[in-house]
Amino acid sequence: MLAGCSSSSEPSAVPAATSSSTTTPQATTPRQSQAPVLDLSRFGALPAVPQPTTDVVSCAYPEQPPAAKEVNPPPTDNVDVFGTVDVALSTSRGPIDITMDRTQAPCTVNSVLSLVQQGYFDGTPCHRLTTSPGLEVLQCGDPSGSGRGGPGYSFANEYPTTAYADDPGQAQNPVVYPRGTLAMANAGPDTNGSQFFLVYADSVLPPQYTVFGTISESGLQTLDAIAAAGVAGGSEDGAPADPVIIESATA
């Protein structure tokens, strides 16, 4: 996928909030004209979610200007690590309901919930759609629509990256992010901001993109319709042919 998630087909090594675009990882296996179906059995699965050892954690959100849309940073202390949060994304192409899981990524959920409550995502485009086997996602969360925008702060990777704390080399080996996964885009390790991607078909990525929830079945139907309309210009990576706007996000 993208190391961050952007309209560029190449991963970026700079934070999403800078002038360089954020990316999602690229598919690890290029599409072959004679073999359009990717053999997912060649890749591993996401690891088990590490279980918390405390009820709350502290999070850090260092400044990463400029902000695509001015918001206050989220709280940093006493962040819950248990429970889920339901968020309804009302889009121009239909509803996409998501469920965020604090146990997977408490600091990520804390940030996204704060952005939802401040109306950060309201009226923002989903700027990137990818449709190649091994990378089938819709990327959203940048008010500028450029793939370069963020909230003015960044934060560290969480699950699944943290599941490899004892063997970080394994965190470079691609795994399958299954259909229905909700994950953060970034521009390299620990450069998460506001951009996220919605996986509508099994996609292969290194476990460097924080997983923080799931997509409802009705939301996947909306994503399927968006994907069926294709990418503008007929490519496999770019703006959706039918524009997708998040009209509102409510928790």
Rank of each mutant, 00 (worst) to 15 (best):
T181E: 07
D97Y: 00
S6Y: 04
G238A: 09
P65C: 06
A67Y: 01
L129R: 07
T191R: 04
G169S: 14
R93D: 03
G193D: 04
Y61S: 06
P30G: 02
R179T: 14
S41T: 11
A105E: 08
S20E: 14
G149N: 06
E247Q: 04
G233Y: 10
P160L: 06
T29Y: 05
A227M: 12
A45Q: 14
D55Y: 01
A187L: 11
P25M: 15
A201H: 15
V244F: 07
V81I: 11
Y159D: 07
I215D: 01
C5F: 04
V231I: 09
V37D: 13
P75L: 11
T162C: 08
E217R: 10
D167Q: 14
M100N: 05
D224G: 05
P160E: 08
S154H: 04
K69N: 12
T161P: 00
Y159H: 02
G234S: 13
S92M: 03
T22S: 15
N157S: 13
P50S: 12
V175W: 01
S33L: 15
A183Y: 02
S7Q: 15
P143N: 07
I226V: 15
R93K: 10
V175F: 02
R179A: 13
T54N: 10
T18A: 10
D86A: 10
P125W: 03
V244G: 01
Q170N: 15
Y209K: 08
G119N: 01
Q104R: 14
A239C: 04
D122N: 14
A163C: 08
C107W: 01
P243G: 06
D39V: 12
V199R: 00
L2M: 11
Q26P: 05
Y159L: 09
G4D: 05
E236S: 13
S114G: 09
V85F: 00
S58T: 15
V109D: 03
T18G: 15
R102H: 07
R102G: 03
K69P: 10
P62D: 09
L115H: 04
Q208C: 03
P133K: 02
S7W: 01
F82A: 15
G4N: 09
S41M: 06
P66I: 03
A67K: 02
A35I: 08
S154K: 12
N157F: 01
F197P: 11
Y159C: 07
A88F: 00
L135Q: 14
A165Q: 12
P206L: 02
A201S: 15
L198F: 11
Q117W: 00
I215A: 08
T29L: 12
P178D: 09
S248N: 05
P174K: 01
Q117C: 03
D167M: 13
A35T: 14
G123R: 04
P151Q: 11
F197V: 12
P66F: 02
Y177G: 12
T28F: 12
S90L: 09
